[in-house]
């Protein structure tokens, strides 16, 4: 009703009088451009996500029809599942260390590489991107930190005489997190790195010439005054990728330190999800874990975006 009254106000006529038909007429081509993607997105991404959130309020074992249990899953997770709290702690610790470091690393490497002549640049991009190019390349770390004397790290340390007997890398609680962090950092020069490289290429070259006329003295000033403002959207993109990436670590943990890891030292939110989703088939519970992770990412994302906007402005 309120809207109807506004509509009749003559001053606002133009703004509110747009009917569906007029909107369509005005923006037809835009909607048509979006349509093919949006249909696929809606069916194969949006509906599954919403279904999962709905399932998080049920008890669902994949065989029987889901049973509505209200907030039980969430209450159990937060109040009674002590392993989940370990997982949250590990995940946050992991993300706080690897997220910012690898973000800066990606940016810095892309920036240095961008200074090189084209051919060298192509080779160096490949060198840094190599770890993420082959899905399972990180399994090499399993050989490096193998707990017998055949592991590269143990063989090296034994030969140097630094240790007398092989170290139990993945079997010692204290070692697990640092090793996972190292592997993740090594692995994380991926999507954001490539996006930054493409972003640097996208910067209008004439701006640099104009800048040097205007008295930009060195590369730091150039980076700060010319390049960074031009790359705002890539920086945002990289941030979102780093946040989602560093909070959703599971593969390297399961493959390297095993599942479950010693004293749950390598347990993350996603390995917890894997436990309930893929091993115990408690899908309702698994969906609740995914939903909590989703809101964590959302929250962190909003904060980081606010911070970045402040820095960029």
């Amino acid at each position: 009703m309120g809207r109807q009254q506004v509509l009749s106000k003559p001053s606002d006529n133009k703004k509110y009088k747009l009917t569906v038909k007029e909107v369509w007429k005005q923006h037809k081509e835009k909607y048509l451009l979006i349509l093919p993607f949006f249909i696929l997105f809606f069916v194969f991404t949006f509906i599954p996500v919403v279904t999962s959130i709905v399932l998080s309020f049920t008890s669902f074992n994949l065989f029987e029809f889901p049973k509505f249990v209200g907030l039980d899953n969430y209450i159990n997770l937060i109040a009674f599942d002590s392993v989940f709290l370990i997982a949250v702690k590990n995940t946050l610790l992991f993300a706080i260390v690897t997220g910012p470091i690898s973000y800066l690393l990606c940016f810095m490497l892309a920036w240095i590489i961008n200074e090189l002549p084209p051919k060298v640049r192509a080779v160096m991009t490949l060198v840094f991107y190599a770890p993420s190019i082959s899905g399972g390349a990180y399994m090499i770390w399993k050989l490096i930190f193998s707990s017998d004397a055949y592991g590269f790290a143990n063989a090296f340390l034994l030969k140097m005489g630094l240790i007398q007997s092989p170290m139990l890398w993945f079997e010692t609680k204290e070692n697990i997190m640092p090793i996972l962090i190292v592997v993740q950092l090594w692995l994380s020069i991926g999507v954001s790195f490539l996006a930054f490289i493409a972003g640097f290429q996208n910067v209008d070259k004439s701006l640099y010439e104009a800048g040097s006329v205007d008295g930009v003295k060195n590369r730091w000033q150039e980076l700060w005054f010319i390049t960074l403002p031009q790359m705002k959207s890539q920086l945002m993109f990289g941030a979102v990728m780093q946040i989602t990436g560093s909070l959703s670590v599971s593969g390297i943990s399961i493959d390297l330190v095993g599942f479950p890891s010693v004293d749950y030292a390598g347990h993350t939110i996603l390995t917890h999800l894997y436990d309930y989703g893929n091993l115990r088939y408690e899908m309702g519970y698994a969906c609740a874990i995914a939903t909590i992770l989703f809101f964590m990412m959302l929250f962190i994302n909003i904060i980081v975006q606010k911070l970045l906007r402040k820095v960029a402005a």
């Binding site: 997105f41 991404t45 599954p48 279904t51 399932l55 989602t244 899908m283 995914a290 992770l293 989703f294």
Partner: peptide
């Protein structure tokens, strides 16, 4: 943007 942040493990079943 937000759906980027939802993990694929659980959406596999509705999918």
């Amino acid at each position: 943007v937000y759906s980027l942040m939802f993990n694929g493990t659980v959406t596999a079943i509705p999918n």
